[in-house]
Write a protein that binds this DNA or RNA. Structure first.
Lengths: 341, 341
DNA sequence: CTGAAAGCGCTTACAG
DNA sequence: CTGAAAGCGCTTACAG
């Protein structure tokens, strides 16, 4: 069954394609009578505008691209949900891609989206990414770009973030306030800005409380899809190397949960022997035992906010109005549960 | 910066648009010399075909739509991952929509995708959905359709499923084999086929083992986004109404985890007092304590398989070849952990 | 109020 | 081997 076109409607009603097109779009210069006839026939024929043709003419696709490092991930899934909820309101569709923390893939995916003619791109960077040409390419092509969570500070576009430094500071301070004397840190890999920031927040909190910073007590989790395992391994290493540690601030809930699992197996009591604070507030963290104290990272709101900003910029760009890039910082809070005193 | 077009390349090289187009697509009837010149210039100008125009001509968008009930969900997230991994290999993009278990939204989203001109649709139905006109509309419009997990048996298209009945039977049999005498069931809402099938599998297992079926011991969890809470509530109700139950087969891991949480709080020992089997094998289930015995539901594979089938059908349809719909059934297995004896 | 015409950027059947 | 021409289905500036 061939789709119905404007031409068919025009022929059937003995009027021009132009008039049919205008009638359907409620142009003021079409008589109500004609509009009525056109709309009625369009409805009965179940006419749907061919969006390929519309795109070609209007140079808009009402579609945006979203690139995230991992899909099976509580935080990112929430971001997606936030973006979709907002896109739906504006009649936009979202093409989703997973970079799998790979710079090469990320580059290819940006290119794909650009070829596809999306109106804008929302992205959270892969851990590997240190070169930003592909992102600048988006801007060069006149498309809107919004980065969130894992951002590149030097790229000239809007960003939606949390204050990782401050949040990490609060997490560490909480451990100090509840009596921890020697606090370790399991950090993320070296590149991404937010794992650096969380580390800096940790160190600053120690400093402000006159606790000496000991680099040997900072462990690195490299691999995004082995978080749980790395949490276990680092916990065991820590146990061997530093039996005086009584608190750990951990970069990510999943790593924290792995660490707790290993510690419990080793007979360590949480929080009595070692207290733990995670980061992100995965649903899981409220369900395990003991429940994990953590930093709430508002994924849904970040997604919503990222799409809203992107949408604004798409509209402004269309009207050739100047665009002011924003750095939107969302609030985080410490969720105090059972893994700390 | 305006995008480069075939016309610009043609003018610059003083040849026709036709030849440029053919050269870039390696048509055999273009001289190697010309091809070389065209490709070189295209590369230096960073030419990218305008996909709106290509779509309009070829009536293909190399894009498929995916509608799922919920995004923040371990199983569905894995399905998405499987679909994306396969789509990437074939150069396809995926537009993702969340129906939020709403029939109305699902209908609108199908319509949106159809208007958008996707080449095919993959869907897992909302719990509410009992009318399938919108799905048949996809087929009527000559697009391919693949359903997975929550399917409608009567819709004429390919399906990717597990054998929910058999899996539920295995789960219940496991409880019986490990000594449970009175087994309750927390089922999903009444409509979706797979919650019906799981219930039937449960009942069949009782029957085959000469255990009388007691409907008062079957509890319903209606609400998809309150699974955890419903698990808690039903567990407490069960405790009040039936203190002789010593095993529960639960429709979904998240509900099971809620139930376990409430039971533990009430001083019930798992599995000593009550043994529990879940369904789906969420990551979380391997991390809580006691670790949940459950049925593994291969989300990633289901996604891969759904896309593969869709892709095959898109290709066949393009060549006007006959299409044979398949019902692909993937294997499940019982993951025996600590919540059963 | 209506419509002829140009054009978005590409592909492809056809002629030479 | 090359190119003129038609056409995909729509939108919109312009003329009447």
């Amino acid at each position: 069954m061939k789709p119905v076109t404007l031409k068919q409607i025009a022929e059937e009603l003995n009027i021009s394609i132009t008039t049919v097109s205008k009638a359907l779009k409620d142009y003021p210069d079409v008589s109500p009578k004609t509009k009525g006839r056109v709309k009625e026939l369009a409805a009965t024929l179940n006419y749907k505008p061919n969006s390929f043709a519309v795109n070609l003419r209007t140079k808009e696709s009402k579609t945006v691209g979203l690139i995230i490092p991992v899909i099976v991930h509580h935080f990112f899934a929430n971001v997606i949900k936030g973006i979709l909820s907002q896109a739906e309101k504006k009649g936009y569709l979202v093409i989703i891609l997973q970079s799998n923390e790979s710079y090469d893939l990320e580059r290819k995916q940006i290119d794909l989206l650009l070829r596809k003619g999306v109106d804008g791109v929302i992205i959270s960077l892969a851990n590997e990414t240190v070169n930003y040409n592909h992102l600048n390419e988006v801007i060069t092509q006149g498309k809107s770009l919004v980065m969130f969570d894992k951002i590149a500070k030097t790229v000239h576009c809007s960003k939606v973030i949390i204050n990782d430094r401050l949040a990490a500071y609060k997490a560490t301070q909480h451990l100090i306030d509840t009596g921890c004397k020697k606090i370790a840190h399991f950090r993320g890999s070296l590149l991404p800005q937010n794992s650096i920031d969380r580390f800096l927040g940790y160190r600053k909190a120690l400093e402000d409380n006159n606790i000496p910073y000991d680099p040997s007590v900072v462990y690195i989790c490299e691999c995004a899809d082995k978080s749980f395992e790395e949490g276990e391994q680092n916990a065991l290493k820590l146990l061997e190397e530093h039996d005086d540690v009584d608190g750990i601030f951990i970069n990510t809930d999943l790593v924290a949960i792995g660490a707790m699992s290993a510690l419990k197996k080793a007979g360590i009591k949480i929080p009595e022997d070692i207290a733990i604070v995670g980061f992100s507030n995965w649903f899981m963290s409220s369900v395990i035992s003991p429940k994990l104290t953590t930093i709430n990272q508002p994924g849904f709101e970040m997604g919503k906010s990222a799409f809203k900003q992107l949408f604004k910029e798409i509209k402004l760009r269309k009207k050739n109005r100047p665009i002011e890039f924003k750095e939107i910082e969302l609030k985080t809070e410490l969720i105090n549960r059972e893994s700390t005193h």
